[in-house]
């Protein structure tokens, strides 16, 4: 990964202010970079930037890197970081705050795609289906074809059930989602 120097132009103060104004933003400036969040995070090794680095980047307003990082999508919302942060910052909440901003900014990397597919599957079926998830995601992400032999061998070993599990009343579920979206629009 090429690392750009941080120069005045890399910093987007409007973005910084936008995040600082959200409920989770209140304490962001008090991060002392202790790293207990990243040290506690079960998936930080998979992230482009660790939770600690993400907080630092928000402080600086490095909008492009923050919003296109995989960090916010990889977070499992396990809350370990939030429970342990000595400054009472909630990195988990920060991830949740940044996701809709990334979508609104039109960021489309594979993490966004996966997230969209995942939520679509849930919206229509009420349950996660590994088969649907993988097949739909593969359509948006051509690179997945490389995983085909692996998927087939899993199927052979019955580790990837083809059946799609659905909840009983998906109609009600649809209403719930619609209401949710409406209330978000209102906000």
């Amino acid at each position: 990964m090429k690392k750009e120097p941080i120069i005045p132009e890399s910093k987007d103060s409007a973005f910084r202010e936008q995040v600082l104004k959200t409920p989770v933003g209140e304490k962001i400036l008090t991060c002392m970079q202790c790293g207990i969040c990243s040290g506690s995070c079960p998936v930080s090794q998979e992230m482009d930037y660790s939770p600690r680095q993400l907080v630092r980047m928000v402080q600086l307003g490095l909008k492009k890197e923050v919003l296109s990082s995989n960090t916010i999508w990889i977070c499992t919302t396990c809350f370990s970081c939030s429970v342990r942060c000595p400054r009472g910052i909630h990195p988990t909440e920060l991830m949740e705050t940044l996701k809709p901003i990334a979508i609104a900014e039109g960021i489309t990397n594979r993490n966004v795609k996966f997230d969209t597919v995942f939520s679509d599957v849930i919206k229509t079926n009420g349950r996660a289906s590994e088969f649907l998830l993988i097949s739909k995601y593969s359509m948006t992400e051509p690179g997945m074809i490389k995983q085909l032999p692996f998927g087939l061998s899993m199927m052979a070993k019955r580790k990837l059930p083809l059946s799609v599990d659905r909840m009983e009343n998906t109609k009600e579920l649809g209403t719930i989602f619609k209401l949710g979206e409406k209330s978000r629009e209102k906000k």
């Binding site: 790293g35 207990i36 990243s38 040290g39 506690s40 930080s44 660790s50 600690r52 000595p86």
Partner: peptide, 23 residues
Amino acid sequence: VRGKVAEILPGPDGTLMVQYEDT
């Protein structure tokens, strides 16, 4: 090491596993 220790886990043999981020 610059980093606040995240976890200290006692092992069965009396040793201790320390997890952290080298910030």
